[in-house]
Simulated assay, not measured.
Amino acid sequence: MPKPLLTVWYNTRCPVCDAGISHQKRRLVEAIKAGHVEFRDINFEPQALSVFGASLEDIRRRLHATDAEGRLLVGADVAIAVWRITPGEGWLATLLGNPIALPLARFAYDRFADLLYAWNRREGRW
């Protein structure tokens, strides 16, 4: 099978993250079957992105992905890449991924991710 166009690493122990990825998986069934996108639980492969210097905690804090060229995407950039390939959600990628909105999207994503990470740690979801 060819290398996926996008491999998304996420934390299934976070109920919000898991629900969001489950939603995307349902929207991307055909792309998953075709091998174009793959979703992987970092808890089963905690060292998977260590070659990029990304720790298990980094990935638990923010979505990470690798694209077909082997580049690492983090946070809002992952969400935008997923929306770009999700039927009916390309407009989100266009809206939030443009040069003007992208810095704000990254900032908002990072602040939300920080709050979510703190909540999950407080709830003992590691």
Rank of each mutant, 00 (worst) to 15 (best):
R62P: 01
F44T: 15
R84G: 00
R40H: 02
N98G: 13
S55G: 12
S55E: 07
L63C: 05
I42W: 02
A65R: 07
L73V: 03
H64I: 03
A34F: 06
G90Y: 13
R84Y: 03
A54Y: 02
V51T: 14
D41M: 12
L96H: 13
E57S: 10
V78P: 06
G53Q: 10
R40T: 14
L95P: 04
D41S: 15
G97Q: 07
V82F: 03
D58A: 08
R84D: 14
P46V: 06
L92M: 11
H64Q: 15
W91M: 04
R60T: 02
A93S: 15
K33L: 06
I32P: 01
L92R: 15
G53W: 05
E38W: 01
F39M: 06
V74G: 01
G75I: 02
G90L: 10
A76Q: 13
R62N: 12
I59G: 06
G35Y: 09
F52T: 01
R84E: 11
F39I: 06
V82L: 01
A76I: 06
G53M: 14
H64C: 00
G35P: 06
L102H: 03
R84Q: 13
I80Q: 03
V51C: 03
L102R: 10
G70L: 11
A81C: 14
G75M: 09
P99A: 01
F52V: 04
V82G: 00
A34M: 05
R71I: 04
L72H: 06
P46S: 10
L92N: 07
P46L: 11
T66R: 05
Q47A: 12
P87G: 11
T94V: 07
R40I: 14
I100S: 00
